[in-house]
């Protein structure tokens, strides 16, 4: 769970950046924006899942 998640997010970031450049060069700005947004949403869901698991563990441990 721990370290490959970091690499996954970095890989998605670089992929989105490259795709954005390629699509912009190919003249399809709208699709470039779409891929950026798609990558953003994927990473956001992963990050939110991790943060919610952190909050739940801390809540159960300190019984907040």
């Amino acid at each position: 769970m721990d370290i490959n998640l970091l690499f996954k997010i970095a890989a998605i970031g670089i992929l989105v950046a490259v795709l954005h450049q390629v699509l912009v060069r190919a003249g399809r700005e709208d699709q470039a924006m779409m891929t950026t947004l798609g990558g953003l949403i994927i990473v956001l869901t992963m990050v939110i899942k991790e943060i919610s698991s952190l909050f739940n563990t801390v809540r159960t441990i300190f019984n907040l």
């Binding site: 769970m1 721990d2 370290i3 998640l5 970091l6 690499f7 997010i9 970095a10 998605i12 970031g13 670089i14 989105v16 950046a17 490259v18 953003l40 990473v43 956001l44 992963m46 990050v47 991790e50 943060i51 698991s53 952190l54 563990t57 801390v58 441990i61």
Partner: peptide
């Protein structure tokens, strides 16, 4: 290191990496 690499291409992804690193470290010490 990943943040430095990502910051040139997509600055907003560096936020996610630092968030995930914080979460992982806290979960390690839990």
């Amino acid at each position: 290191i990943l943040i430095i690499v990502i910051k040139q291409y997509k600055p907003e992804f560096s936020v996610y990496i630092s968030l995930i690193a914080g979460v992982i470290i806290i979960l390690l010490i839990i």
